[in-house]
């Protein structure tokens, strides 16, 4: 219990102008430096709160402004995509992603996942149209990292991009994992067949 009453004093100084806290002694440990950086960042983002609040409000009623903006950017991206302007669509999706990921950290992470997985998945599709397989694969992976269940499209896109790059084994693994999450989903099952066929063909050539 003595632990609860004592603490280790860390010599700290504050920059009077920017109010940034830094260590008073010059050789600092990495952990302390990282922590102070995080503290200063959080302090700065706390300043962005609306007037009556001085501390983060409870996470649940979310300020709808940012969600509306993210949705709008996604919609614009979708329209551009439908018109065939894939580069423009990618730009809109990227902006939307920035908007969604710079959401204040105390807002619900579930909401961030929800928004971000759609944007990533759509951007992956746009990259695929431009035959940017690498970007497509990465975006699809990010999308399934946000939401692995009920995200069959993103799983499909990841498998497809990997297959296009000739990484047949990786594609197989991705699709197998996808089938675990999604059950028997039409597109995925077909893709799996395609991959298996390719694997079999490669084996024949090797032999």
């Amino acid at each position: 219990m003595s632990d609860q009453d004592t603490f280790t004093f860390i010599p700290l100084v504050m920059d009077p102008k920017s109010k940034a806290i830094s260590s008073a002694t010059s050789p600092t440990s990495k952990a302390l430096e990282a922590e102070l950086l995080a503290l200063n960042n959080l302090h700065r983002s706390l300043h962005g709160l609306d007037a009556p609040h001085v501390v983060p409000p409870p996470p649940v009623p979310v300020n709808p402004k940012r969600s509306a903006q993210v949705t709008k950017l996604r919609e614009s991206g979708n329209t551009e995509y439908r018109k065939g302007n894939h580069a423009e669509a990618i730009k809109f999706y990227t902006l939307g992603l920035q908007m969604a990921l710079t959401r204040p950290p105390w807002e619900p992470s579930q909401l961030v996942r929800e928004e971000v997985h759609q944007l990533y998945s759509n951007r992956a599709q746009a990259h695929m149209q431009k035959q940017n397989w690498v970007e497509g694969a990465i975006d699809a992976e990010a999308s399934v990292a946000c939401k692995s269940q009920g995200n069959a499209k993103a799983w499909f896109r990841r498998g497809k991009c990997l297959l296009e790059m000739g990484r047949v084994q990786d594609a197989r693994n991705a699709v197998a994992k996808a089938l675990e999450f999604e059950g028997e989903e039409g597109g995925l099952a077909e893709l799996k067949k395609e991959i298996d066929a390719k694997l079999a063909k490669d084996k024949v050539v090797e032999a």
Partner: peptide, 25 residues
């Protein structure tokens, strides 16, 4: 509410780190 906010901050940090890792590839 401090722990509700703290919980979200922690979860968001985990999510963002993961995404950054993926993008870094």
């Amino acid at each position: 509410i401090i722990f509700q906010s703290a919980n979200e901050i922690a979860a968001n940090k985990v999510l963002r780190d993961k995404l950054e890792d993926i993008e870094a590839q």
